[in-house]
Amino acid sequence: MPDNPLVIDLQGVEKRFGRKVHALKGVDLRVHGGEVFGLLGPNGAGKSTLVKCMLTVVRPTAATGTLLGKPVGHKPTLARVGYLPEHARFPKHLTGRQVVSFYGAMAKMPGTLRRKRTDELIDLVGATDYADRRVGGYSKGMQQRIGLAQAMVNDPDLVVLDEPTDGVDPVGRRDIREVLKQIRDRGKTVFINSHLLSELEAVCDRVAILVQGKVAKQGRIDDLTIDQRYYRIGFDWTRDTARPDAAASALGVALKKTDVRSGLDVLRGEREGVWFELHGPNLSVGVEEPKDAWPIIDMLRNAGLVVRSVQPMRPSLEDLFMEVAEHGSSDGGVKR
């Protein structure tokens, strides 16, 4: 994917609302063709504003870059883009089928093709049963499915989805995930803005984390978490080492009780640049290579502890997000 041409290439996107609100403070963002890209960030980070700047809904205070190879703001290019906004509201007097067809016409699709695509997409998003009812009577989930169909009706090269699974039940979420994968498999690019980290983790190739109007992290999830890989060593308690501090003693580390995982009894400590975290009969060790864990395993065994498992671990997207959201990132850089 990184070898594919850039579909979104934004540089220095800045947006001020009046004099007080500085929503975007120079965002650089790159999305390659054919990938599913996730934009994360806490509330008020500027995610929706960034998407709106990209799609001409909001006028950026400053921005350079391209969208599908054309300068940002080039209206004809938007015929190749599909968009589902957060809290989408469609004309209540139209049926679901008419909504999809209407937005297809607004994207300058010829009538015959539009009708064919509409029928296909209604079927694809599973809205056939209610497609001929007025959207005024739809539930949130039904509206999102129709919204997804309208975002794809013009067979866009780039699909931008703002909270696509908002209000959708678990079955619907799974369906939407499948649809997104189908879009990606056709070589299209998907840009998702969502709070649901697990959803993103399941479908995204790359992510960017936006914090206070700046990109704090950007890249593949694996790459972003490479610095935080660790090993989890599971062992059994014996009578002699029944106290957690026995493990600490064996390691020669002063473990202190922390409240990082609130409600759980977690002990943390550090020695020679390696961090340790003891959580019940599991010891997490902040080393990247397996061989670096061997001396630690030996120490545990010498102290009479029975090692039963050693697992390489990676922080989840949620862990990454929480860390960035809480501490920010000084690099703000792009990993690949």
Binding site: K52, L55, T56, V57, K75, P76, T77, L78, A79, V81, Y83, L84, P85, E86, H87, A88, R89, F90, P91, Y103, M106, A107, K108, Q150, V160
Partner: peptide, 12 residues
């Protein structure tokens, strides 16, 4: 909000 966004992202 939610209605105008969709229209403004069309080539019009």
């Amino acid at each position: 909000t939610g209605a105008i966004d969709t229209l403004l992202t069309k080539p019009i």
